[in-house]
């Protein structure tokens, strides 16, 4: 068989986690995997990321929590979740049976709480990596407050690093003036990888009722509407860090995913698109493979950061 015609290598390694392909699903858009497993075989994914976990169960924000906007949506879920202990007890046994990588997205109201959650997951069989959500715009305390400040980011990452030997991925907020500063702070304190972007803070108004469409007034914008911003930030961050980057924000098809790889992402994560077209991550994997063949690449890594720029 001709070498160039053999199937290109799709597997990637991020933060020491070997994934069978570079397509992941994003936190908060995939539950704990159970519902999506009713639709397709999740072992086809590179990895899946579970809904943000906290030390104790969270009630979440009052409804309405979501609203559609042009080519996107706003959400203010407020991190409703069952808590890390219930996750380990009730959800992990199911996830362990699936032959894919599982990333646990976590958050806390304080740096110590982040560390406590990371510590509990450290000994949990079935978790391949931890994603620190320091970028959620939908909770009063915690979340984004950590990810918009260099020193706070550094402290959260430092404490979490001490609490776990698992690969540590830090998820960055786009709601900052200079995302590269935060990226460097995370890298300096021992992050193994970065993921970006979380949602952009936004708002929508019902002019008939003279009220915001979300109960909390503001929420996080996701979907194709944020893709250009996400792409730009992944591009900026991957130029200043040695760490692998997981790119996300409005990715709906293989072409979008390839653009993120070209600007420097080592893998991509699919969020809002799961709602619109649950099978799209699978089409993305096939599409990336076809692109690699068509362009004579043998490994997906060859695309990472392969963007050709005019020197200025």
């Amino acid at each position: 068989m001709n070498v160039s015609k053999s199937a290109p290598e799709l597997s990637v390694e991020i933060a020491g986690i070997r994934m069978k392909n570079p397509v992941l699903t994003a936190s908060g858009t995939f539950g704990y995997g159970e519902e999506m497993a009713q639709i397709y075989d999740l072992s086809q994914l590179g990895a899946l990321t579970v809904k943000g976990l906290s030390l104790r169960p969270q009630t979440g924000n009052r409804p309405p929590r979501i609203c559609e906007t042009p080519a996107g949506m706003l959400n203010s879920i407020g991190l409703q979740n069952i808590g890390v202990e219930a996750f380990v007890r009730d959800k992990l046994p199911f996830l362990r049976r699936i032959d894919t990588r599982v990333l646990a997205n976590i958050y806390g109201h304080s740096a110590e709480e982040y560390a406590a959650v990371a510590g509990i997951l450290d000994g949990a069989d079935g978790v391949d990596g931890i994603e620190l959500n320091i970028s959620c715009p939908n909770v009063k305390k915690g979340g984004m407050a950590f990810g918009t400040d260099r020193a706070e980011t550094g402290r959260v990452v430092r404490l979490a690093r001490k609490a776990t030997g698992l690969p540590l991925i830090v998820k960055l907020s786009p709601n900052v003036t200079d995302i590269t500063e935060i990226a460097r702070a995370a890298e300096g304190e021992g992050a193994d990888a970065l993921s970006l972007i979380n949602t952009l803070l936004g708002m929508a108004v019902d002019i008939d009722r003279k009220k915001p469409r979300l109960s909390r007034g503001v929420g996080g914008l996701s979907g194709p509407a944020i893709r250009p911003v996400a792409l730009r930030m992944v591009y900026q961050v991957s130029r200043v860090t040695e760490l692998p980057v997981i790119g996300m924000g409005g990715i709906v098809c293989a072409e979008d995913a390839i653009a993120f790889l070209l600007v420097g992402a080592s893998a991509v994560s699919v969020g809002t698109a799961n709602f619109v077209d649950p099978l799209c991550p699978l089409e993305m994997i096939t599409g990336i493979e076809a692109y690699l063949k068509e362009h004579g690449h043998t490994r997906v890594q060859e695309l990472v950061g392969a963007l050709e720029m005019e020197q200025v």
Binding site: G28, T29, F30, G31, E35, M36, I39, K51, T59, G60, R62, P63, P64, R65, I66, C67, M73, N75, I77, Q80, T272, N274, F275, P278
Partner: peptide, 22 residues
């Protein structure tokens, strides 16, 4: 009825207050 994003149970966007929480 409720405003829904996923319809599948993955987004937590459509909740209603019940005795067992949202």
């Amino acid at each position: 009825e409720s405003h829904m994003a996923c319809g599948l149970g993955t987004c937590m966007g459509c909740v209603i207050a019940t005795e067992d929480g949202y």
